[in-house]
Computed example of a mutant assay.
Amino acid sequence: MTRRHIVFLSALAVLAVFAAAVFLYQRHTLQVAALQASEQAGAMVRPHSPIIGAEDAPVTIVEFFDPACEACKAFHPRVKQILAAFPRETRLVIRYTPFHREASVEAVRILEAARAQRKFEPVLDALLDGQRAWTGQRTNASLRAWAIAQSVGLDVEQARQYIASGSVDALLAQDVVDLKAIGVRATPTFFVNGKPLSSTDPDQIFELVKREVERLR
């Protein structure tokens, strides 16, 4: 066996060991996430959590969601497709995850004010569609978020009065406590009937939801 062959085989062995280590790490991470989710089942869904879909649906998709997160925006149409594919069997529960700080917090306040006015979904869609206009350090970014919400029917004066009551900040504080207890570190993070996803592959989300729907039929 030549020296070149020995080097090549050694490299293959190193790659195999590395791949095995990555696989074991991912499996361990998923197991830890599942254990945390099980232990914190009461913190997964709260009575105050926004729900899209049938409230009594047997399959619950929990999304730890940041309205200022580009990945959350990218996944939103696919999540809506899943809900449309299984309209009677699935519901989406949104948990706020304000990792983008001020921009996220202000958007959550607007969303909750919109929910009080029964305009949650159109305001959510509008804020995500216009996300670039109100995120980052741009001047008047917050005002742009409000203008976007107003453009789809939000009563701004009524919304600001609702926010001033402090109920939104209390709700958001509870969501932050829960996401820390569950161990959420990135957005979007999905759980389907308490089962964590090993990745944010849209196809994997669909397949897991489909399996749960078929199992419960």
Rank of each mutant, 00 (worst) to 15 (best):
M1W: 02
M1C: 06
T2D: 15
H5E: 15
I6F: 11
I6G: 01
I6R: 14
I6D: 10
I6Q: 13
V7F: 11
V7D: 04
S10V: 09
A11H: 03
L12M: 14
A16T: 13
A16M: 14
A19Q: 12
A20P: 00
A20M: 13
A21K: 03
V22Q: 14
V22I: 15
L24H: 08
Q26S: 14
Q26W: 10
Q31G: 09
A34S: 14
A37G: 15
S38R: 14
M44K: 05
V45D: 06
V45Q: 09
P47V: 09
P47E: 06
H48G: 01
P50D: 09
I51T: 13
I51Q: 07
I52Y: 03
I52A: 07
P58A: 04
T60M: 13
E63Q: 14
F65A: 09
P67W: 11
K73D: 04
K73L: 03
F75E: 11
F75Y: 12
H76F: 11
P77N: 06
P77H: 05
R78N: 07
K80T: 04
I82V: 15
A85K: 10
L92Q: 12
Y96D: 14
T97L: 13
P98A: 05
S104P: 06
S104G: 06
V108R: 05
R109E: 12
I110A: 05
L111C: 10
L111V: 09
E112I: 02
A114F: 08
R118E: 06
K119R: 11
E121K: 08
P122I: 02
V123P: 04
D125G: 00
A126R: 10
L128R: 02
L128E: 10
D129G: 00
R132P: 00
A133Q: 08
G136K: 00
R138M: 03
T139D: 09
N140Y: 04
N140L: 04
L143R: 12
A145F: 03
I148C: 01
A149Q: 05
D155E: 11
E157S: 13
Q158I: 02
A159G: 08
Q161L: 12
A164E: 15
A164N: 10
S165C: 07
G166C: 06
V168C: 05
V168Q: 07
V168D: 04
A170K: 15
L171W: 13
A173R: 13
V176C: 01
D178E: 07
L179K: 03
A181W: 01
G183P: 05
A186C: 01
T187M: 11
P188V: 13
T189W: 10
N193W: 11
L197N: 10
T200E: 10
R211K: 14
V213F: 00
E214C: 00
R215F: 01
L216Y: 01
